[in-house]
């Protein structure tokens, strides 16, 4: 029987980290460790002697992982980013999902696959949620700017709210721009003039 795989997950956000760790544990035969803080990252990783290290692709501390690709590094076992060879398709999926994996040299692709499948699914979900949150925030911001622009127009031209919005929309359509962009330009201009 082969030994259980040791997986280290590097993730600062506590809730996200718990989700990933739990999913990996459920998926089967691996031991999972979490590193939440990037201080002395390479040393902490080396202490676990992991087979696989997973880290968010957008995490700037990813560059610290690059040290582990050198055989003279603290692991004394070279790792490669999980990119090429037999599992090439998986690598592309991983990149799209926003997870980068560092795998110890010589580990068979079929042993990596279950872990990666789980990680990809989990990171995709996290990424989708983050995008949705960002979009909601942006929509909220746009709403606020449009409200301020409407207020400025109502005051300056003595018109009501509906008329103010209609004016914004017409201007946006005439100029081929978004209502929010026109509103923002108006608010900025008013700020400069006021």
């Amino acid at each position: 029987m082969q030994n259980r795989l040791t997986v280290v997950v590097v993730e600062e956000d506590r809730d996200r980290a718990i989700g990933i760790v739990d999913a990996l544990k459920e998926s089967g035969d691996c031991e999972v460790f979490l590193i939440a803080h990037h201080s002395a990252l390479a040393r902490k990783i080396a202490a676990h002697a992991p087979d696989i290290v997973l880290i968010d692709i957008d995490n700037p501390t990813r560059d610290m992982m690059e040290e582990l690709t050198l055989a003279s590094g603290p692991l004394d076992r070279p790792v490669a980013m999980f990119v090429s060879g037999a599992a090439g398709g998986l690598a592309q999926a991983a990149i799209e999902a926003g997870v980068s994996a560092y795998v110890v040299d010589g580990l068979a692709p079929e042993r990596v696959k279950p872990v990666m499948d789980t990680a990809i699914a989990r990171f995709s979900m996290v990424r989708r949620m983050r995008q949705e949150l960002a979009e909601t925030r942006r929509a909220l911001e746009e709403r606020k700017v449009i409200d301020r622009a409407k207020g400025l127009l109502m005051k300056a031209k003595g018109i009501d709210e509906d008329a103010a919005y209609a004016l914004l929309r017409k201007t946006a359509m005439d100029q081929g721009r978004k209502v929010a962009d026109v509103a923002e330009a108006l608010v900025t201009a008013a700020g400069l003039l006021g």
């Binding site: 692709i57 700037p60 990813r62 560059d63 992982m65 690059e66 980013m81 990149i95």
Partner: peptide
């Protein structure tokens, strides 16, 4: 890019 390794991967993978 958030990191040099990401930048390299973006280039290598054709992003």
């Amino acid at each position: 890019a958030p990191s040099w390794s990401s930048l390299r991967d973006m280039l290598g993978f054709g992003r």
